[in-house]
Design a protein around this nucleic acid. Structure first.
Lengths: 402, 402
DNA sequence: ACTAATTAATAAAATATATTATTAACTATA
DNA sequence: TATAGTTAATAATATATTTTATTAATTAGT
């Protein structure tokens, strides 16, 4: 009878579906009084009262006691029980992984950023990834069985529904999510990195009322995430947002996808890296010239560091890339008429060095009437964006809130 | 008590909201038995029975009697009453207007295609437009008060919520929808032409299960419409879909929007028209050379006619434009991972002449994994697309089904 | 400190909806 | 053409939900 709203099929079970709606409300809006929930959900106070009592007895919800008010009897406010369960997230990028855990309320309890890890398309690499995840989870003060699920971000084509990753860790028959599940012994959802970051920024961003936003993940590659009418957009197989492979340039640079002219070949961390080393080869000077001339590998992180130290070559290249990115963003504005565009990923660390040329290109290339609707911001979450998104998204998936 | 589900606010009125859901179901799926509706809506048979009886007494719904079955008692099937009301639609393009009327069931009763009309940004032009609409509506066999609303398609930036059109008929203080309403004495909704066409194709297309589709309106300009998760996408102010002004080319052609490099300058009817006349000026021959050399104006329609007659220059230019369009469509595929892309508008009449280069460019420029999800089709509705969309959309808006 | 006004929470009554049982209408098959 | 099996529609009953009334807790003003 008193089945958890998480379990079973609740098709046509109004009570369970209302409970889910309450959880959704608390996830998005924090704490609420019964009267507020009742108004928000167009459902009577006695019904909400009954459901809240049940949710408390199931320990998903806590009574946080009386709240201050502007006249009248003070209501009790209710919110999610932080300890009802935890959700872990892993963000895998080109050379690093980051991991974290959020509680039921969505607060991040643990975070490990940018641990070095080189991904290879082998079972061994997957084993090693999973043992890193396992040791992270075991070191937590949270009992292992309280971690309800794990979200894993990967770049490239990821079908989070089927659990298959096609660009990385495409290791044959079984879906990747199942392979990881077998190794970490906990439900696993995989997701495209840009989409997860988008969700993180959407849920944690200051503009929580925003219903139409585009997140730009400008890292080694370039991907975007799309929130439309308040929902994360996937597309037919979850491959939406591959803006990096938009045929944007008339150049002869071969993209890692095999095609040429991709936006990514001119607008991305890899593009900056290529341009920068090309210039060094041509004899341009930079504070990285020494390292380069000693035959050492220049990384994208080196370039971003140099930028912070006002390296002229880095500034110049970022400006150039920013201009093209602004042009590309103009296209998105004309296409989506979004309320908000958030720039995130590695390149977002360039802050105003990249935002300035972007803004000026938007003025140049987008329809003014359309672009004046659109706010452009830097990611609030920074390097935690990927993990936050992974955690938030896996919570929503687990609770069935999407 | 027995308030029509169309009127008043039905916030928190379950009965009215269920009625709307039934209407929505019948709009999308045609006729249903009570059992089917009950299953589809997760609501009990007695409840649905009660609501259907009410809807019949309100004359929105008709009992179409017994249906054949595969064993067991035959159910009565119910569907929309065609005569419950009518919806008119007007599609205004560069040089023509088309008008039509659908009944409550969505069947087109009347259609007048491509009546010549030159739109100007003046009150006089608007007066003349409205008198054309009025005489069309008055000539119908349908009593005027049975026409519940009128949908008007315009190209350019249209905010259908506020009723303002910013690109055409931007005539000052009052919203355009109100100006037309005053002249035709019937509720008016204005809409962007590409979006309306998209909705028409979405509702009438063969692939009715498709939840993610992109419609490409390739006419004098180039616009797209977006259906995501089964819903028509508007964006913040309803300006989404302005793909024609995506900064796509590195050319020096000034677009009608004032910017340069817009996709429209290379992929659109106007681009074909420009290229064609340029070639004629350069001395290239075509079956239109005679007309051109006599100093007569060559229209886009002339070129499309010549194409049908296998004019080599027309074929050549269409092929070239098709290739660029395919490149542009590849970008959309990578971005949206849609299930279906429909090509409509004037250029769709070029059929395989344009589809072939488009398909080949998609193979060249899109990610195979993504594009193999996507079917590409020509519009089923052809020249009726705009009016059909206007009618279907204004029905949905009036019935509150969006 | 008392009173009126305001809002919250609970209880009782009324209404709405769903479940189950029953009857009806039909198909397929012996 | 009878009969078992199947599905639909209706009736009766049970359950769920809302509405209204009542009580509780609080603030602001006198």
């Amino acid at each position: 009878m008193n089945t958890s709203f998480l379990q079973k099929s609740y098709e046509g079970n109004r009570s369970a579906s209302l409970k889910k709606d309450i959880i959704r409300l608390l996830v998005i809006g924090g704490n609420y009084s019964i009267t507020d929930i009742s108004k928000e959900m167009n459902t009577s106070v006695p019904t909400i009262t009954k459901l809240i009592v049940e949710l408390i007895s199931e320990s998903y919800v806590l009574d946080f006691g009386k709240q201050g008010t502007n006249g009248g009897r003070r209501p009790n406010v209710y919110g999610l029980n932080p300890d009802a369960g935890y959700f872990a997230g892993v963000d895998i990028s080109k050379d690093f992984i980051s991991m974290g855990v959020i509680n039921f309320k969505g607060e991040m309890n643990e975070f490990v950023g940018n641990r070095e890890f080189v991904m290879e398309n082998t079972i061994e690499s997957l084993d090693s990834l999973c043992s890193i995840i396992n040791s992270f989870l075991n070191k937590l003060s949270i009992p292992r069985d309280k971690i309800l699920s794990l979200g894993v971000n990967l770049s490239g084509r990821v079908n989070s529904e089927s659990g298959y990753s096609y660009s990385f860790y495409f290791l044959g028959e079984k879906p990747l999510s199942m392979l990881i599940e077998e190794r970490v012994d906990c439900p696993v959802y995989i997701e495209n990195d840009s989409r997860a970051m988008t969700y993180g920024e959407f849920m944690m961003g200051s503009d929580s009322h925003v219903k139409n936003m585009i997140f730009i993940n400008a890292s080694w590659g370039l991907g975007i995430g799309i929130i439309m009418d308040g929902r994360l957009y996937y597309g037919k197989s979850g491959f939406s947002g591959e803006y990096g492979h938009f045929p944007f340039f008339d150049n002869e640079i071969i993209c890692r996808c095999g095609k040429r002219g991709c936006l990514e070949t001119g607008v991305s961390g890899s593009a900056i890296h290529r341009m920068f080393t090309e210039r060094l080869k041509e004899g341009r000077v930079s504070m990285l010239s020494g390292k380069f001339n000693n035959g050492l590998e220049i990384t994208l992180e080196d370039i971003m560091d140099a930028l912070q130290k006002e390296d002229v070559l880095a500034i110049e290249i970022i400006e150039c890339v920013g201009n093209e990115m602004g042009k590309a963003i103009s296209g998105l504005i004309n296409l989506f008429n979004p309320e908000l565009i958030v720039l995130g990923g590695t390149l977002a660390a360039a802050k105003e060095y990249i935002m300035l040329p972007i803004r000026s290109a938007i003025n140049k290339y987008s329809l003014i009437l359309v672009s004046k609707d659109t706010k452009l911001k830097l990611s609030r979450l920074g390097e935690k964006c990927g993990v936050t998104g992974a955690c938030m998204l896996v919570r929503s998936k687990t609770l069935g809130l999407l």
